[in-house]
Write a protein that binds this DNA or RNA. Sequence first.
DNA 1: TTTAATTGCTTGCATTATGCAAGTATTATC
DNA 2: GATAATACTTGCATAATGCAAGCAATTAAA
Lengths: 137, 137
Amino acid sequence: MPQVKKRRSDCPVNFALEIFGDKWSLLVIRDLMFMGKTTYGDFLKGPEGIATNILANRLEKLETAELIIKAADPDNGTKFIYSLTERGKDLIPVMLEIVNWSGKHDPKTPTPKEMLKQISTNRQAVINKIRKKLLST
Amino acid sequence: MPQVKKRRSDCPVNFALEIFGDKWSLLVIRDLMFMGKTTYGDFLKGPEGIATNILANRLEKLETAELIIKAADPDNGTKFIYSLTERGKDLIPVMLEIVNWSGKHDPKTPTPKEMLKQISTNRQAVINKIRKKLLST
DNA sequence: TTTAATTGCTTGCATTATGCAAGTATTATC
DNA sequence: GATAATACTTGCATAATGCAAGCAATTAAA
């Protein structure tokens, strides 16, 4: 009998946490969403220094949850291209609000004030722009 | 020398994850933000079944991060009242986007369709309403 | 056509975090 | 003074994470 871990509750906050409630998953999403990264090696190079086994584990979990999808690189047989699914792209608003919150409360935030203003006052346009950029990948 | 854990990066997503990037912290925030809960015992009763030591640990961390504040209950010397700080209340947009995302992608979500529509089309009003309710606590 | 490099992992093991059950400290109530 | 309520703390087992090394498949170089 395949042991499927039963969910702790049906609360929507809990639903989300059971998928990406850890210190690494959203960093992979960030790299795909904002940084133009697409490969295992790309993610590994991030400033936080994720371990190889943790990265492999998160990629697998995110793929199982259908937030990302893995495809062979047609130009390079040793590589795989990861990209966001529609479900993954639907996290753009969540991610932007997180960026906004940190921009407001972290004195060391690197996010330009102009960008924070755009997110606050022009939300939908910013979302559309990011989505559009992701289309072409 | 007090060992302060150095941050992994200055990325705003990482900043947020280092504060509430785990499976429990946002559930405490949820209880304070949406459920009208205010005490240790309240949080303990939640449907997810948080362990007593984990709850104590998260309350301490959230207080250290100044997302919540702990105060003696003037009416009951055995109780403490926890509440959201301004910084904590600023997570309302993040939480609403999470609820929205889960509402869209979890077929078992308990959030009424009407509420999801309100969050999508009337965001600021919903945020204001929740903020106002929290004022009176 | 072997040889080396690139890429994406897996494995083993130490450390840390989580989960569970039980116990303690403080204040309030009887 | 004894009991209850509330908010924790502690000890220990299990699980997750972190680190270093190794491996397998494909590509590029000699």
